[in-house]
């Protein structure tokens, strides 16, 4: 999936996270900010990178500001931001790349 433009998904409300994806020339760069960085920082990064891998996003700069989001919310926000950044429209591959 090619990231064509900057896109955002999520909020800074409790239990949510704000994900921003921007185009990049080579590779993936992840910036993470979280109030629970010590305990869950590694896990949040893992979930985000796995999600980007499933979506086949190879070049992007990704920023996540976490406010205590569950794994399912991190996945949902990363997917949404990536789909918006790639100008994806139409049917979604539920259970395929989205899982």
């Amino acid at each position: 999936m090619e990231i064509l433009k900057t896109a955002v998904a999520g909020t800074l409300e409790s239990s949510d996270c704000l994900v921003t994806i921007e185009p990049a020339r080579s590779g993936l760069q992840l910036d993470l900010e979280s109030a629970v960085m010590q305990q869950y920082g590694r896990r949040i990064a893992e979930v985000a990178m796995e999600t980007l891998d499933r979506l086949n996003v190879q070049n992007a700069r990704v920023s996540i500001v976490d406010k205590g989001a569950l794994d399912c919310t991190i996945k949902a926000r990363v997917e949404c931001a990536a789909m918006r950044a790639a100008d994806h429209e139409g049917r979604v591959n539920w259970g395929g790349v989205i899982r």
Binding site: G10, C72, T73, K75, A76, R77, R84, I98
Partner: peptide, 15 residues
């Protein structure tokens, strides 16, 4: 609307 669907799908699957 798109964001709500991604949230729904993963909530149904994982919670």
């Amino acid at each position: 609307k798109d964001a709500a669907r991604y949230s729904l799908y993963h909530a149904l699957q994982e919670i």
